[in-house]
């Protein structure tokens, strides 16, 4: 990777004040609280750690890949496939995100957030690359794909896109828990600070994963150049997401 440069766009993308609807989602925290599985700081810490190690890591890798794809398609003018390689356009990357999200409730939450984020990003950082993503995935790109694409267009490196995705994977649930359990916001931010090394590891895994399609070409028969990306799943989150969708009274969409 080139010498690290400071990119203020990363802060804008990761900021919960970005008007892209992220505040309406708790990432399974509301359902975990309703089930009694998250009830205090230690159980919230364990929830966040597990979420980051699974769906957070996968989101980081998808976002880094989307960021790299945005950069390469901005350079070439298209997101075309080199001859002989497995397909590698926006639709294929989005399908890889879908195959890693078994729960339909989570896929829907991811698409809703991705669609809103892409709409916002296209107004802030207008680019044919983002227009291309919106055209290629008319049902709404999955959130990590939209986040990574926006990061790429805003000039971020894949590792930065991964960091933003991993950060979003834990800050949303943490903020929701503060509101739902009345926890001390400073104590909860302390938990997030404790996760900083894990966030950085997820970002570096993500940037490595985004770089690998170029260095180790997958077989031609692979479904896409991203077939081998991490796919860590969290069965409890899947069950919680479906239960939440059927809950009568809820503050958060997911």
């Amino acid at each position: 990777m080139s010498a690290p440069s400071l990119n203020a766009a990363l802060l804008l993308l990761a900021d919960s004040r970005l008007p892209a609807g992220g505040h309406g989602h708790s990432g399974g925290a509301e359902a975990a609280i309703a089930a009694g599985a998250v009830r205090d700081l230690p159980t919230l810490a364990a929830f966040l750690r597990g979420r980051l190690a699974t769906s957070g890591l996968v989101a980081a890798c998808l976002a880094a890949s989307a960021c790299a794809l945005a950069a390469s398609s901005a350079g070439s003018g298209t997101a075309g496939d080199p001859a002989g390689a497995p397909p590698g356009g926006w639709a294929e990357l989005d399908a890889e995100a879908g195959a890693r999200t078994a729960s339909p409730a989570q896929r829907e939450a991811s698409r809703v957030q991705g669609r809103l984020l892409l709409r916002t990003a296209r107004r802030i950082w207008p680019s044919p690359v983002l227009d291309g993503l919106a055209r290629a995935v008319p049902e709404g790109a999955h959130h990590p794909v939209a986040l990574g694409a926006a990061a790429g267009v805003a000039g971020c490196a894949p590792g930065e896109a991964a960091l933003a995705a991993a950060y979003a994977a834990v800050t949303g649930p943490a903020t929701a828990a503060v509101r739902l359990l009345g926890l001390d916001p400073v104590a909860v931010h302390r938990l997030l600070a404790d996760l900083a090394p894990d966030l950085e590891r997820a970002a570096s895994t993500g940037s490595g994963a985004a770089a690998s399609p170029a260095s180790v070409p997958p077989p031609r028969t692979a479904a896409s150049v991203w077939a081998e990306l991490p796919a860590h799943s969290a069965p409890a989150l899947d069950l919680l997401a479906e239960r939440h969708l059927r809950a009568g009274l809820r503050l958060f969409v997911s």
């Binding site: 966040l48 750690r49 699974t54 077939a227 860590h232 969290a234 989150l237 919680l240």
Partner: peptide
């Protein structure tokens, strides 16, 4: 030729196994 399901499980890291987001008390 299209991906249907990709899943990885990791077992044996106590900090992750017992997370209410992953396996909880299962």
């Amino acid at each position: 030729g299209r991906p249907l399901l990709r899943q990885e499980f990791t077992v044996g890291d106590p900090a992750i196994d017992a997370s209410p987001a992953v396996y909880g008390d299962a």
